[in-house]
């Protein structure tokens, strides 16, 4: 079977470009804009809706993420090797996935409703925020659609993404490109994958960067952090050529 140029572009070039933008974009953003790297929380403005919607969405999407790690990252052979039949896997994926998916969608719907209707929150919403919400919502809704229409209702016939999308996805990271697998996938999965990769490309330039600030180190660091003033003259680094002349450290030990 041959693959068309469009397939190559959509399922090989586009993902790699998006991933490259994702990685390099984050490096660039971190170096360029540490000050802008924040959750941009709007809790100060409104907390009644946020109290429910935000945990619902965030915990939901964390579970969804773990589900994707399972579904996309782990080959069928592995789950079979540990004695998990496809039926059990399917049941677990659908049941846990449905709970996570529904809480994500409900949470997101509430959050977007809140963002639109609460005055201060809406005025604090940037254009990039709106665009990002659009893409994120597309990804989530196509994902939900695939689960409900494809896996639960079996609309449009049976399709096992673990034999198609997952293999293609893993291939991207192993440089084992299989665009024909995606070309054969149902339109719902295609749209979901495209939207997701576009979201990855958008990621470093949105508030989504806060995902990489998960403060797990908090569990282990000492409560109170001490820091010394930087050992330099003045409050900013010297310009090149204006460094203080300093005694070099003496060489000790063997000559």
């Amino acid at each position: 079977m041959t693959t068309s140029t469009t397939d190559i572009l959509l399922w090989v070039v586009f993902p790699y470009v998006c991933l490259a933008v994702f990685v390099l974009g984050h490096v660039w953003r971190y170096r360029y804009d540490k000050f802008g790297w924040t959750t941009r929380s709007s809790q100060l403005y409104e907390s009644r809706l946020l109290r429910w919607a935000s945990p619902l969405f965030h915990f939901g999407i964390l579970a969804v993420f773990l589900g994707h790690v399972m579904g996309l990252g782990i080959p069928k052979a592995w789950t079979r090797a540990v004695g998990m039949t496809d039926e059990i896997y399917h049941f677990l994926a659908i049941s846990i996935g449905a709970v996570a998916g529904i809480s994500t969608v409900v949470g997101m719907a509430l959050l977007i409703y809140r963002r639109r209707t609460v005055g201060p929150v809406f005025s604090a919403t940037t254009r990039m925020d709106k665009f990002m919400y659009l893409v994120l919502a597309t990804v989530i809704f196509t994902g939900m659609w695939n689960t409900i229409a494809g896996s639960i209702l079996n609309l449009g016939g049976h399709y096992d993404y673990r034999d198609g999308v997952s293999v293609w996805f893993r291939g991207i990271f192993r440089f084992d490109i299989r665009p024909e697998l995606m070309a054969d996938a149902p339109i719902g999965f295609q749209l979901h994958a495209l939207a997701a990769f576009f979201l990855f490309a958008l990621w470093p330039f949105t508030r989504l960067v806060h995902v990489f600030s998960v403060p797990l180190g908090y569990m282990w660091r000492p409560y109170v952090v001490y820091r010394s003033r930087p050992d330099r003259l003045g409050s900013r680094a010297s310009r090149p050529g204006w460094e203080r002349s300093e005694r070099r450290p003496e060489r000790t030990g063997r000559r």
């Binding site: 804009d33 940037t126 508030r207």
Partner: peptide, 17 residues
């Protein structure tokens, strides 16, 4: 900057000693 209020390249300290 492009990412909302105050984003952009690192400022030199305006409150220089």
């Amino acid at each position: 900057g492009p990412f909302g209020e105050g984003s952009g390249p690192g400022f030199a300290d305006p409150i220089a000693v």
